[in-house]
């Protein structure tokens, strides 16, 4: 190409540019969603307006109870129960998941029956079972070291199975069934090549699990487990049915005496939101520390 023709070509491009920049471009507006947004906002304003004019919440009562000692204790108990139950459920779930993938037909069947039973019945029924039905079935608890005279525990079951124990066992076993499925999915998602490589290096079965499979499965399990933690923190409210003094039980005890139902439920709701925010933050932190690759 000669110099002259290059100059001509660029002149043509310039012309095209100057012609195009004069035109204004208007994109399509999604009118439908804006109209719907307006309707929803209108409804919301109407509800808030109705609530304010009816004086549904007494803000001073809400503020008084928000940091009251009993409420804080109840929230603390909820957080403790949910957290301890999560770790117990994680341990139960890991064992159940390993049984399921062990290749042994008896262990695998036992594991899937456990998951079916404990995932298939309402948590509330399980809690009531551990607190009320279990002590009826086995009224006396006697634990001794076999072939010796050492007795570890001996007493009526009702004394051993306190609301705290029943709630912990109930939530851990019910949640363990969900965790078993989550952990199993995580273990299966680890490429078999990773196990082959660890095996070929001479790692033993336990080492392969601990050094290679679990660290990788954990990155898949973590987000789902965080979700379960949030569910579990809210599920601790079920323990109110068996008299464990967690947040909801404390709240209902107070409002059944003073009839400030709305304010106290708002207080309980507030603390559940705080707990959930805490769990979400923890989950995000862990996911950042152990990113999935």
């Amino acid at each position: 190409m000669t110099m002259k023709s290059v100059a001509q070509a660029s002149a043509t491009v310039d012309d095209t540019h100057s012609r195009q920049t004069r035109k204004r471009i208007v994109h399509r507006r999604a009118w439908g969603s804006w109209i719907f947004a307006g309707v929803v906002l209108g409804l919301l304003v109407a509800i808030v307006d109705a609530a304010v004019s009816a004086h549904v919440v007494d803000a001073s009562v809400f503020a008084n109870y928000l940091f009251s000692r009993k409420i804080l204790e109840g929230a603390g108990n909820s957080l403790l129960l949910g957290t301890v139950a999560l770790f117990a459920a994680g341990a139960v779930g890991l064992i159940a998941a390993l049984m399921r993938v062990s290749g042994n037909p008896v262990l695998a069947t036992l594991s899937s029956v456990y998951v079916y039973l404990f995932r298939g019945t309402p948590m509330l029924i399980q809690l009531i079972f551990w607190f009320n039905a279990f002590p009826l079935m086995f009224p006396q608890l006697h634990v001794a070291i076999p072939f010796t005279d050492h007795v570890l525990i001996d007493g009526p079951m009702t004394e051993v199975v306190t609301p705290w124990i029943a709630a912990l066992i109930g939530l851990s076993l019910a949640e363990g069934a969900y965790m078993a499925e989550i952990i199993r999915a995580g273990l299966r998602a680890v490429d078999t090549g990773q196990r082959d490589a660890a095996c070929a290096l001479g790692m033993r079965r336990g080492q392969i699990l601990y050094r290679v499979v679990i660290p990788q499965a954990a990155r898949i399990i973590l987000p789902a487990a965080g979700n379960q933690y949030i569910l579990l923190l809210k599920s601790t409210s079920l323990a109110s049915a068996i008299g464990y003094l967690e947040l909801l039980r404390v709240t209902t005890d107070i409002y059944s005496a003073n009839f400030r139902v709305v304010e106290l439920l708002c207080v309980a709701g507030f603390w559940y939101l705080v707990m959930t925010a805490f769990a979400t933050a923890l989950q995000m932190l862990l996911e950042r520390l152990y990113p999935h690759r």
Binding site: D191, G193, Q194, D196, A197, A198, A200, V212, P215, Q216, R219, Y290, R293
Partner: peptide
């Protein structure tokens, strides 16, 4: 005592 190298590398991802 037996080293192995795989088609899909199988480096430990974590």
């Amino acid at each position: 005592r037996i080293g192995m190298v795989f088609q899909s590398f199988n480096l430990f991802r974590h």
